[in-house]
Design a protein around this nucleic acid. Sequence first.
DNA 1: CCATCTCTTGAAAGCGCTTGCAATAGGCGC
DNA 2: GCGCCTATTGCAAGCGCTTTCAAGAGATGG
Lengths: 327, 327
Amino acid sequence: MADVALLAGVSTATVSRALRRAEAVSPQLRERVLRAVDTLGYVPNPAAGGLAAARTRTVGVIVPSLVNSFFAATLDAMAERLAPRGYQIMLGNSAYSQDAEDALVNSLLSWSPAAIVLTGQAHSRATLQRLLGAGIPVVEMWELGENPLDSLVGFSHRAVGRLAARHLLDRGRRRIAFVGAALDEDRRAAQRGAGFAEVVRESLGATPLIVSLPQRASAATGGRALADLLERRPDVDGVAFSNDAMALGGLFECQRRGLRVPERLALIGFGDLDFAAWSAPALSTIRPPRREIGLAVADHLLQRFDDPSAGPTTIDVGFELVPRAST
Amino acid sequence: MADVALLAGVSTATVSRALRRAEAVSPQLRERVLRAVDTLGYVPNPAAGGLAAARTRTVGVIVPSLVNSFFAATLDAMAERLAPRGYQIMLGNSAYSQDAEDALVNSLLSWSPAAIVLTGQAHSRATLQRLLGAGIPVVEMWELGENPLDSLVGFSHRAVGRLAARHLLDRGRRRIAFVGAALDEDRRAAQRGAGFAEVVRESLGATPLIVSLPQRASAATGGRALADLLERRPDVDGVAFSNDAMALGGLFECQRRGLRVPERLALIGFGDLDFAAWSAPALSTIRPPRREIGLAVADHLLQRFDDPSAGPTTIDVGFELVPRAST
DNA sequence: CCATCTCTTGAAAGCGCTTGCAATAGGCGC
DNA sequence: GCGCCTATTGCAAGCGCTTTCAAGAGATGG
């Protein structure tokens, strides 16, 4: 930076200002500084900047899983938006564990990030306290409940569950069930199940049928859970799966048993994963805006970085029913 | 840190040493320091440490895609191993673009990372130079070619392609083809195709049949490419797909056309994704050790961090044929 | 034309650690 | 018991930036 300052004939203070807060420097000087930066190929040292400013251009993001392509897509989109503005994502994988999340929040905060992004709204007291104390924007994403910690970007999983149930009812199904996996761990899946149950109670006055295996969601889990279900309630005629991977497993299980979809059994998933539009029959599903969540989070953060007086917001990104041949 | 030093009755230098290089401090003092750290809840400021040491406890990782669950699993495993040792992953998504990779390497290096991990072995001159100049461990993963830049952890995609072809031959198929997607972008998929072609030439003396659509790999792409193929060569009796997602699309396409798998057409994929074991029929595939790559990379790096005299290595993590009902 | 204000800029003081170097304290051989 | 060596420890100088504060330069108004 000293070299740049020398070449541009200014002080390092001016170089710093020209790079960080362009409006604080006269246009011609800024131009000179930028040229010098360019010819010297100067790249600022973020550790030094972070130390001096007590704030780094990083955003800490904690997701419960990467292999789950929901969050991968969100992360992709977020990085895409943040990178050009010089923000680096620091990734934490909580593996659906609150203890792990606590530790991650701690270590991410030690970097003095510009913001923290968490998945969901269930956090430990200690984490809440630390986050509040950090005085930086905090975004909870992929949920849309009450009392956000700060900002919130997501949609209602209860509403997703309700929509799935209503869709099956619309298709004339009356003996319907919800199939999930690890519902004790995956709060959002559980919320979808709860929404589904509500509609069953309200519209059919029946006791909702919810099946959940302890294993993580996967095609195999979906297939096995459906097999269980058919054992217990052979007359079921519509099933909502907690996600498309499980629905795919269910579809294969139907093929194996010779159950026609949707004639004998209507199937709906959640996620609109890659294969859903192409399966035979094509899978009805509910599409969450995976990338849009990332974009919305990033845009909101950039706005708050630019204008520190801007406060938190709650953004409902919604979701979409994608009816296809399987229902 | 000054507080910790005060409480432990030592200098900050000793605290730093006790925390960083335990063996450089007498056991009883280290014990005292650790206790003080604990009671005060002290968390070191990595930006300050990075500035002073010209090295941060971060590992820069560049992957071409996150939505692709191959790299997600590798990343997961790597983080799992690195996090307990206090190393933070800084993620870069190159989106299969070399220019993007260049920019990412630049910005990751500005953090003075402890190491850089890249996907594949194709990098620009500038990146190579910068990486070499950084004087830190560099790992290329997911390939296993000649002339590694430094360390290399992967397997031979050519060998995967050869194995797929041989497996189809073993199953008595003679009119076989390889179906890929965006082979110009995805070097590793192209290598698998090349390996497949070699075997076709060697064993059948025939001109290899390789189909590739310009779109990214997906179930839809796989299905469409298979449709194309069947149009051009209706008598094809065995197909290797460049990955399981495409193979799944191919499987559905077969169901749609009423082609029996494997009797009429044998299908083999690559990846052993979640659904492969559960599809109907279950999908034969070749399993790359997705998580093992991440673990091997992390373990290798930790070893080199501990013992700076340790040099680069090349690790062949291999792969495995998983024959199932689809062939 | 002078006093007052506003806008730019530079000087310099750190930000919180790490580490080279010097000092001190034991340990050991003779 | 003395001198030398090694193992520990502290001192203090930065690491490369950001930002506060003060000063200088124009702009503005009476």
